[in-house]
Amino acid sequence: MQEYYIGWGTLSLINAGIAQGKNRSGLNWFLLSLLLGPIATLAVVIAEKR
């Protein structure tokens, strides 16, 4: 079960990095990713760059 948490946290960090690259709030996307996981990844990838 611990691997699940590590993977989810890593995904959240990756999403925050992608969001910052698109001039969006990394912290907000990190927190959103903790809740939604892969759905947030899809949303941040599809989002337009500001």
Rank of each mutant, 00 (worst) to 15 (best):
M1P: 08
M1D: 01
M1F: 03
M1Y: 09
Q2K: 09
Q2V: 13
Q2H: 02
Q2S: 07
E3V: 15
E3P: 02
E3Y: 00
E3D: 11
Y4I: 15
Y4A: 15
Y4L: 13
Y4D: 10
Y5M: 12
Y5L: 12
Y5K: 10
Y5P: 00
I6V: 14
I6K: 14
I6H: 03
I6F: 01
I6M: 04
G7W: 01
G7F: 03
W8G: 01
W8L: 14
W8N: 10
G9W: 01
G9S: 14
T10N: 05
T10D: 11
T10P: 00
T10I: 14
L11D: 05
L11M: 07
S12T: 06
S12D: 09
S12V: 14
L13E: 03
L13I: 13
L13T: 10
L13S: 03
L13H: 01
I14D: 15
I14V: 15
I14H: 00
I14P: 00
I14C: 08
N15Y: 00
A16Q: 09
A16I: 11
A16R: 09
G17N: 14
G17C: 12
G17K: 07
G17Y: 05
G17Q: 07
I18R: 07
I18F: 00
I18D: 10
A19K: 01
A19E: 00
A19M: 06
A19P: 13
A19N: 06
A19Q: 09
Q20M: 15
Q20P: 00
Q20K: 15
G21W: 02
K22A: 01
K22S: 02
K22L: 10
K22V: 09
K22W: 10
K22Q: 10
N23M: 03
N23I: 06
N23H: 03
R24T: 03
R24H: 12
R24A: 13
R24Y: 13
S25W: 03
S25H: 04
G26K: 12
G26M: 07
G26I: 02
L27F: 12
L27S: 05
L27D: 01
L27W: 14
L27Y: 13
N28A: 13
N28Y: 13
N28T: 11
N28E: 15
N28G: 04
W29C: 05
F30R: 07
F30A: 08
L31A: 11
L31S: 05
L32Y: 07
L32C: 05
L32F: 12
L32M: 04
S33W: 03
S33V: 11
L34G: 04
L34T: 02
L35F: 08
L35R: 12
L36Q: 06
L36R: 06
L36W: 00
G37E: 05
P38K: 02
P38L: 14
P38S: 08
P38H: 02
I39F: 02
A40R: 01
T41S: 14
T41N: 10
T41L: 13
L42W: 08
L42P: 00
L42Q: 08
L42E: 13
A43Y: 12
A43D: 02
A43G: 04
A43S: 12
A43K: 09
A43I: 14
V44Y: 06
V44C: 07
V45N: 01
I46K: 15
I46V: 15
A47I: 07
A47S: 11
E48R: 15
E48N: 14
K49Q: 03
K49M: 04
K49C: 10
K49R: 14
R50P: 15
R50W: 00
R50E: 09
R50N: 15
R50H: 01
R50D: 09
R50Q: 05
R50F: 00
